[in-house]
Amino acid sequence: MKNKIQILQSKDATIDDFLLSHNPSIQMELCHSPDKCYFGDSPTLSLLKLAYGSRAAELWLVPQLTSVSNYCGLKEKVSEEQLFELSQLIATYYHWLKTDELMLFFARFKATQYERFYSYFDPQVILTSLKQFLVERSRAYDRRDQEIRMREMEEDRKNAITYDEYLKMKEEGLLPECS
């Protein structure tokens, strides 16, 4: 874990550096590569806290949530209390999510792939939508695991020998002794 913190801090020395380099403006860029978001090396919310302090994840989430609110053109601005509490909830209950995954989620939310607001900002709409995103994320991880297993099975098949080859090798004493 210490190495991950050092790598993160070598890229972005302070939380302000991280906030600048991982701001909402790059959400659209990330949505073109979902696999990079899921399987890349962006930091988790937990890692942000370890690297930059206990409020770092919330500090990063607030601009993301504000961007969603502004984009949706709601009748009223989101309240500071809603922003703060929602950022705390996400940072607490979804601390294992990577920042790129969350930016992918926010971009998809803006693209109306999930629930929607009806005139007013509703934190529960975000949280319900986040659960839908987690189902998609789970499917992506399952698909990737299956692809890895299939590659491993294919590699094993390439290295496999037939039973006849095994008997011949055994007869010639080419197999290691089992103890």
Rank of each mutant, 00 (worst) to 15 (best):
R151F: 10
R143I: 08
P24L: 07
A57K: 01
S42H: 03
E81H: 09
S54H: 13
L50G: 12
F105M: 11
K158V: 09
D122Y: 02
L47E: 08
E76G: 04
G40P: 01
L74S: 03
D12T: 07
D12E: 14
N159R: 15
T92H: 15
Q6N: 15
D156T: 13
F18Q: 06
M153N: 14
E76C: 13
D122P: 01
S138W: 06
Q9V: 02
L59P: 00
S87N: 01
I7Q: 13
D145E: 10
Y120P: 01
Y52S: 05
D41S: 09
K98C: 02
R151I: 08
Y38Q: 03
G53I: 07
S179A: 10
T112I: 10
S138G: 12
K170W: 02
D142R: 00
L65R: 02
S87Q: 04
V68S: 05
K170E: 11
D100N: 15
M1H: 09
V62Y: 08
V125Q: 13
E29Y: 13
F109W: 11
L74K: 04
K4E: 11
K170P: 03
L89P: 00
T112S: 15
R143S: 12
D142M: 00
F18R: 07
K131G: 15
T44L: 01
D145H: 03
N159V: 03
M169G: 01
G73I: 08
K36Q: 14
K49G: 13
I90Y: 02
S54E: 15
L104Q: 09
K2R: 13
S87E: 05
L102K: 11
I5S: 09
K131E: 15
D164Y: 07
F84W: 13
W96P: 00
A111V: 05
I5D: 07
I7F: 12
I90L: 03
F84S: 15
A160N: 09
Y163F: 13
S87R: 00
V68K: 08
R139L: 11
Y94T: 03
L134D: 04
M153K: 12
F18I: 02
L83W: 02
W96G: 06
S25V: 10
D16W: 04
L97M: 11
T112C: 11
Q6K: 14
T44K: 05
I5T: 08
S87T: 00
P176G: 02
T128D: 14
K36R: 12
S33T: 13
L45C: 09
Q64L: 15
K4T: 06
M169R: 15
L175F: 00
K131Q: 15
L45E: 03
L19S: 13
R108D: 11
S129E: 07
M103D: 07
P123N: 02
L8Q: 04
Y120H: 08
Q82G: 01
E29V: 15
E85T: 09
E177H: 01
D100F: 14
K158H: 12
P43T: 06
K98M: 13
S119I: 06
D17H: 11
K36M: 06
R108N: 14
L74H: 01
